[in-house]
């Protein structure tokens, strides 16, 4: 028996399609090839021990797969909801934090705004007669000597009533910013004027120096051009 025939019989043998006569012929051929018949019988035994596939295996596998898919979906849904809730909580916490910071910052500014007549210190830090301010009015108190005083105000202010110590009187209707020194005096007027004059003086000096520098640069450029022309 040639090799092709042996191969053909062996394939039929592995497929379980050989007849007893063909098995005998195969054993004889393999015996001629020196292959142990015992090995061949062992292969035959393995073939017989192949487990049979249950008829409902496919259905049970399909059911198992469906069950696993459902469980997976349930697991995915729960974390997403939880994550969404945590995200909204984080956003709300961020907004609350920012709002609190802003309120705290603005509160620090607004605390200086008087809600009514308050006592303001002199801007130079000296303990002079105190001057009070309000949102709508300027309030003036007297000095420690208990003498009636007339506060120094701009001529445009309304007439002032004299007052006793720690009593307030309304002298004008003006709205001041919380951080301003409410005492408008000639000294303040002079300071403002001096500030403007100083500013203008420095500005003009600086501009003057710039103009001089520009002229110098222009002269240098002209000199260089002349030299270049000559050469």
């Amino acid at each position: 028996m040639n090799k092709n025939e042996i191969d053909r019989l062996l394939r039929k043998y592995y497929d379980g399609e050989t007849t007893p006569e063909e098995v005998r012929m195969l054993l004889e051929a393999l015996g001629d090839q020196g292959i142990d018949a015992l090995l061949l019988r062992g292969l035959n035994q393995l073939r017989e021990e192949v487990p049979t596939v249950p008829a409902d295996l496919e259905q049970s596998l399909s059911d198992s797969i469906d069950r696993w898919q459902e469980e997976e979906k349930r697991e995915k849904v729960i974390p997403a909801t939880w994550l969404r809730r945590m995200t909204w909580a984080a956003v709300a916490a961020s907004v609350a934090l920012i709002a609190t910071l802003g309120w705290w910052h603005l509160r620090g500014e607004s605390q200086l705004e008087p809600q009514g007549p308050v006592i303001a210190n002199n801007y130079s830090g000296e303990s002079k007669p105190e001057l009070t301010t309000g949102d709508e009015e300027i309030v003036v108190a007297v000095d420690d000597t208990n003498e009636e005083v007339r506060p120094q105000v701009a001529p445009k202010a309304r007439p002032v009533k004299s007052v006793r110590r720690h009593q307030a009187v309304h002298i004008a209707q003006a709205k001041f910013e919380a951080d301003d020194d409410p005492e408008i005096s000639e000294a303040d007027e002079e300071k403002v004027l001096m500030a403007l004059v100083t500013f203008s003086t420095v500005l003009n000096k600086g501009v003057g120096q710039l103009e001089e520098a520009s002229e110098t640069i222009e002269e240098v450029n002209n000199t260089i051009k002349q030299h270049l022309t000559i050469n």
Binding site: G125, A154, A157, K175, F176, D180, I184, D188, V192, L193
Partner: peptide
């Protein structure tokens, strides 16, 4: 404000309106 050895002046727009800042001191 209130610091020793510092002097400060802050004057707002409303206060500036009360000051006759026109052509004074020769400027």
């Amino acid at each position: 404000k209130g610091q020793p050895d510092f002097t400060f002046v802050t004057i707002s727009k409303a206060a500036l309106r009360m000051l006759p800042l026109k052509d004074k001191m020769g400027v």
